[in-house]
Design a protein around this nucleic acid. Sequence first.
DNA 1: GGTTCGATGTCAGTAACTGCCATCACACGG
DNA 2: CCGTGTGATGGCAGTTACTGACATCGAACC
Lengths: 189, 189
Amino acid sequence: MGRWEPDSRGRLQEAALALFSERGFDQTTAAQIAARAGLTERTFFRHFADKREVLFGGSAILRERIVTGVADAPADAGPLDAVAGGLDAAAAMLGESRRELARLRHEVIVATPDLRERELAKLADYANAVTAALLERGVRQPQATLAAEAGMTVLRVAVEQWVRDDGDRELPSIMRESVAELRAVTERA
Amino acid sequence: MGRWEPDSRGRLQEAALALFSERGFDQTTAAQIAARAGLTERTFFRHFADKREVLFGGSAILRERIVTGVADAPADAGPLDAVAGGLDAAAAMLGESRRELARLRHEVIVATPDLRERELAKLADYANAVTAALLERGVRQPQATLAAEAGMTVLRVAVEQWVRDDGDRELPSIMRESVAELRAVTERA
DNA sequence: GGTTCGATGTCAGTAACTGCCATCACACGG
DNA sequence: CCGTGTGATGGCAGTTACTGACATCGAACC
């Protein structure tokens, strides 16, 4: 066995979610998270740039998946079709995590202004990346920005519905329906 | 003459913008801002909940103006027309400030991730308020959310163009053109 | 077997924010 | 004209987020 237990980063994320959920974000210190993970505060800040980031560990990967989904759409697909491809990829990735964990995480974020702010920043980051991918496909401004922003709105709404839903509808299904609603709004004369 | 100089809040805002612009947000402490305004750090945090808020002093008023603009649109106006009314009100208010100051403020925000995050939060706040105002007008979901989000995207883009523009096109004019572009995108079959 | 390397620990320091109490000009009632 | 309350501020101690510099030690590599 190694000098240290493996997956420090993952342990920090688990510990943080548990503590935030139990006592709240503001009532939890970085040192407490580190202690529960068997580490020190200094190591916490080596893995995460700030206390909020510990809840957004997969965001870089998610952004890449979304961008790939947009880029891989058929060449003759319209902007909204391409965005839908990105949302499919997002739903596939997010839908893999246990819904109970996603719900816990969502509850913590909703309850904490600082975390809501960070989530908005992540969505804006995805939107910028999608805008760039659409421009790469030859879509023009301002269509690219508007399609990307609308797509991120759909992503947000669909995930909210998913974690709130008591039934067992899976995220990809909800996502496709949300995209269909977006189409219904934008395609009417 | 009173015990203290008047308009502490305004002096803090001026001092903060000047210092952020000269030395950067991270290199400026709240105590330095307060000192330049002839006050103490403690008083700074009585006027502003945190260091970022000092650059967003008018946001509550702006939100009310936007909401009023939406609510005051003719009863037979569509969702986008109502949103356009809110954007007119926003342009009227924001366009009154000296463009040089707006440019300075915008440069500081763009250069500082923390401030960009806060600006996104403000825009999301406006979007929520506009969504509520649209629902009040009988607009249904998800049209209300989408129209509100698209409207805030237009607001952001128009202001960016305004502060970047070397010419002397005024904000209301730019805003109306941006709204027209949004219509062109959404109204084509 | 020695050496370099990567992940962690330790410690000191800065600055954002908060709570508590003191101060003092001003307004207002008697 | 005097006492009293009030609102905006100052002073100060305390917590916590975050950072830089240096030490440690198992492991991989030569």
